[in-house]
């Protein structure tokens, strides 16, 4: 019983630690968006800031799925059947952004 209790306390600690990380990342993102956007636009380096947002959002997604949704504690095959289909989205993102870019060229033509 006490062993189970210790495990429960450990899990709650992990949950709170994850919450802290999610909050820190979100605060850093917002501070960057409010204070640094102009600076990066001026130096033509907005892509750096945007890559930062995308990587941080993926990190947040990882924390939510692995800890909050307990994926970390599921059988690995279950995780794979959920995650592998997401690979198709990478294809869709690349294709559709390239397509959007060519619409821009057609608009300007």
């Amino acid at each position: 019983m006490s062993n189970e209790h210790a495990e429960s306390v450990k899990m709650v600690k992990l949950i709170l630690k994850t919450t802290l990380w999610l909050s820190i990342i979100t605060i850093v993102e917002i501070v960057a968006a409010v204070l640094l956007t102009d600076l990066f636009v001026k130096n033509n380096m907005l892509i750096v800031l945007n890559s930062f947002y995308i990587i941080m959002s993926l990190a947040k997604a990882f924390f939510i799925v692995s800890v909050f949704m307990h994926m970390k504690f599921e059988v690995k095959f279950l995780a794979l059947t959920v995650l592998i289909p997401m690979g198709f989205l990478l294809f869709a993102v690349i294709t559709m952004l390239a397509e959007g870019n060519s619409w821009l060229e057609m608009r300007n033509y």
């Binding site: 968006a33 409010v34 956007t37 989205l89 869709a92 959007g100 870019n101 619409w103 821009l104 608009r107």
Partner: peptide
């Protein structure tokens, strides 16, 4: 994802986009 990818494609097709701030 299909919603957000549509967003990305349309956004790429405009020269400028409204600034969130």
């Amino acid at each position: 994802a299909s919603f957000l990818i549509t967003y990305g494609a349309l956004r790429f097709s405009y020269e400028s986009w409204p600034a969130p701030t």
